[in-house]
Amino acid sequence: MKKAVIVNAKRTVIGKKNGMLRDYPPEKLASYVIRNLVKDIDEPVDDIVFGNAVGPGGNIARLSALESGQPYQTPGITIDRQCGSGLEAIRLACHLIQGGAGDIFIAGGVESTSTSPFKCRARFSPEHIGDPDMGIAAENVAEKYGITREMQDEFARLSYMRAYASLSKGYFSDELVQIEGIPMRDEGLKPNLNYERMLKRVPPSFKKNGTVTAGNSCGINDGAAAVLVMSEEKARELNVKPVLRFVDSTVIGTDPNFPATGPIPAVSNILAKNNLSVEDIDLIEINEAFAVKVALFSRTFSISYDKINPEGGAIALGHPYGASGAILVTRLFHEVKRYFPDLMLSAIGIGGGLGIAILWERIS
């Protein structure tokens, strides 16, 4: 069986809804990332796999391939696993390589909430089971598992501080592609804002006397991210240096009323499949749609925040739904070069009650 490796990973800046990327439809955002990933390889891409959640519908991956100037022969497939779509795209590309379906793939995700034609979200679950909006669902988890506002604000503050430190050190510049006329800085991060004061003052967003606030939740955002995936043999043939090797993946369902719990069974499953314990994992990138998700995950596995999102995450930077899973892997790709972890996880919890986890190993 072939082994899939990540040889490059890039993203656009993350913009706020109706913010600096408001005039860029999803295929345009994706095209900047695709062009950057293929510029140094002379061989054709076998397929482009992109995730997308809020429209406009159609095959955005193929549209993006054409928009980016790829040959007509380069196909594209668009998948929707809601906010896990970008991670699912990478998962699928890795398994396609394992199965011998090709040697070079671009996989990732894109979202333009600013240009989405849909006023309301799609249904996540039948009403007779329960189909809460994500904010209420986060409140459900906080109440059921006793995750206090103080616990959520503690992690949110960490996300902001880490993201600001990473910005100051120039870490994000490694990840970013240039869009002409757009600053090379994520729009949601405001270095001059007193986040400590903001977290204390902001009221609950979804429920009276609730614990989930605009401060300890992600924003609504635009952006794109993708990785260049190859078989290990092809990377050697092209003399390209791989950084991450795909080990295994899992996807699992959970109660749609508590979607923030999704990463817990997904990570439990992948650890058991590979005879690992959480102590064997050196670094985890998990989507911070809500701080309650990360606080519960950390407590369940008795894992320190030191191993989770060391350079900040979606609370500080934003959550462009279809792209977020690919942003996790892009961040991991560049963090590996700084921290030298051996085993890593990327994981995401999804509306409708789903969890995805991918296990990676560093290629030394």
Rank of each mutant, 00 (worst) to 15 (best):
A30P: 10
S31C: 08
Y32F: 15
V33C: 12
V33L: 13
R35E: 14
L37N: 12
V38M: 02
K39Q: 14
K39H: 14
D40K: 12
I41V: 15
E43H: 12
P44N: 12
P44F: 09
D46R: 03
D46H: 09
D47E: 14
V49S: 02
G51C: 09
N52E: 12
N52D: 08
A53L: 11
V54P: 00
V54R: 03
P56E: 13
P56S: 13
G57Q: 07
G57E: 05
G58R: 07
G58P: 12
N59T: 11
I60N: 08
R62T: 07
R62W: 10
S64K: 08
L66I: 14
S68V: 09
S68N: 06
S68L: 05
G69S: 13
G69M: 11
P71R: 10
Y72C: 02
Q73V: 07
T74A: 11
P75V: 09
I77D: 01
T78D: 04
T78K: 05
T78S: 14
I79K: 05
R81L: 07
R81D: 03
R81P: 04
C83T: 12
C83L: 09
G84I: 07
G84N: 09
G84M: 06
L87K: 02
L87Y: 02
E88V: 14
E88T: 13
A89G: 08
L92W: 07
A93D: 03
C94N: 10
C94Y: 09
H95M: 13
L96R: 11
G99S: 14
G99T: 07
G100M: 07
G100F: 10
A101I: 00
G102C: 05
D103A: 00
I104E: 02
I104N: 00
F105H: 04
I106Y: 00
A107F: 03
A107V: 04
G108E: 01
G109C: 06
S112N: 01
T113C: 04
T113F: 07
S114Q: 11
T115I: 05
S116T: 15
S116N: 06
S116L: 02
P117C: 08
P117A: 06
K119M: 13
K119N: 10
C120M: 13
C120H: 11
F124L: 02
P126E: 06
E127L: 06
G130D: 00
D131K: 04
P132S: 08
D133N: 14
G135I: 04
I136E: 09
I136R: 10
I136W: 09
E139M: 14
N140K: 06
V141D: 03
V141W: 02
A142S: 15
E143T: 11
E143P: 02
K144A: 08
Y145P: 01
G146C: 03
G146L: 02
G146F: 02
I147R: 00
I147A: 01
R149Q: 06
E150H: 09
E150C: 04
M151I: 00
M151P: 00
E154Y: 14
F155A: 08
F155M: 12
F155G: 09
F155T: 10
A156N: 01
A156L: 03
A156Y: 00
A156C: 03
R157Y: 15
R157I: 03
Y160N: 00
M161E: 15
